[in-house]
Write a protein that binds this DNA or RNA. Structure first.
Lengths: 159, 159
DNA sequence: TGACTAAATGAAAATCAATTTCAATACCGA
DNA sequence: TCGGTATTGAAATTGATTTTCATTTAGTCA
C-alpha cells in the first residue's frame, strides 16, 4: 500500500494506514461517520477531517467509489471486481447488492450508441425488502407504533 | 390542478399555482434553485421555502421524483410515461436521458427474484459526453486553461 | 544521522443544501 | 362574511461536507 501510494505521489502515515485498513475491513456502503467511529475505536486521536480526507483519497486512487442512495449521506463502496447494483429499502434503510454484469453489458451498449465515454454507472432500486414487508403485514394486524427495520444505519452524531 | 390537489387535501394558492406551472414548464432535472429563479422572474415575492415545499409537494402527489447524480444538488424529474436513465457528464455537468424500458424489465426480474418490492429505480451513467471529449482533445493540443463545458448548471447562490 | 520541505494532521470554522420554526396571511367551507 | 386550518416568507437551524490554518511529520538528500 505504501508503495502504491508513493507511485501516486502520496505519503504514508499511521493515520492513513489506519483509515485505509479500517475502510477495507468494514463491509460495503461505508459512510464517513461509520468509518470515523471505527477508526476512533482504535485511535482516539485521529481527527474527523483526516478520516474524511483519506476516504476521499481512497476514491482518488481508484479503490472506492461514492454511492448515493438519496438519504443525505454519502456512502463509499470498495471497487470490487464485479459490478453490482443496490436495493435500497426505504423502510429499514438497508442496502442489498445484486449482480449487474448482464445489465452492465447493456448499459455499455447504450453508452456507446450515444458516444458517451463511461467512467462508472449506478443502478439503484428503491423499494421495500421482504423482511420489512413481512413486518408491515404483521403491523397492520396488530397495530404497532413504528417500523424498526433490519439494519438501521444509526450513525452516531457526536464528533 | 386545483381539483386534483383538493382530492389530496391541499389548497390552491397563487404561489403554489406558479410553482407548479413553472416546474412543468421547465425541462427535466430541475433543482430547487433553478425553479426558484424561474418563479422569481415572475413573482419576486415568493419565498424560497415556498418553492421548496411545493416542489416536495409535487413529489408527494406523485407528479415528480427526486434524481440524485451525486453532485450535491437534488434535482427533480417530472414523472413521465417512459422510464429513462441518465448520462451525467462529469465535465460539463449536463444530464442526458436515455431510454430504459428493456433494462427496466430486467431490473424488475432481479427485484422479483430477491423478493424486493420495487417502488422506483435509478440508472445513472457517469462519464464524459462526446462534446466534452472533443473539447478535451482540442485542449490538450492547444493547452488551454479550463474546460467550460456545454451547459454548466451555474446555480445562483443568493437567496 | 540531521535537516529540510512538502504533505498530512487535527481542531475549529466555513460552506452549502435541505429543512424547520414561527408569526402573519390567505384559502375555503359553513 | 367568518373562523379554523393550511400556506406563506423570512430567518434560523440542521446536518453533512469541505476548508482553513497552525502544527507536526514523512520522506529525501547531503
Amino acid at each position: 500500500m505504501r508503495e502504491f501510494l508513493k507511485t501516486k505521489g502520496y505519503k504514508m502515515t499511521p493515520q492513513r494506514e489506519l483509515v485505509f485498513r479500517s475502510f477495507f475491513e468494514l463491509g460495503e456502503h461505508v459512510s464517513v461517520d461509520e468509518l470515523f467511529d471505527r477508526v476512533r475505536q482504535i485511535d482516539k486521536a485521529v481527527g474527523y477531517s483526516t478520516v474524511w480526507r483519506n476516504l476521499k483519497l481512497i476514491c482518488e486512487v481508484g479503490l472506492a467509489r461514492e454511492v448515493n442512495v438519496g438519504d443525505g449521506v454519502t456512502r463509499y463502496d470498495r471497487v470490487t471486481r464485479k459490478p453490482h447494483g443496490h436495493f435500497y429499502c426505504v423502510s429499514c434503510k438497508s442496502l442489498l447488492e445484486f449482480d449487474l454484469n448482464e445489465i452492465a453489458g447493456r448499459l455499455a451498449k447504450v453508452a456507446t450508441a450515444e458516444k458517451f465515454e463511461t467512467e462508472s454507472f449506478k443502478v439503484e432500486i428503491e423499494g421495500v425488502c421482504k423482511s420489512c414487508r413481512d413486518k408491515e403485514n404483521r403491523k397492520t394486524k396488530r397495530s404497532l407504533s413504528e417500523s424498526p427495520g433490519v439494519s438501521k444505519a444509526k450513525l452516531s452524531k457526536k464528533r
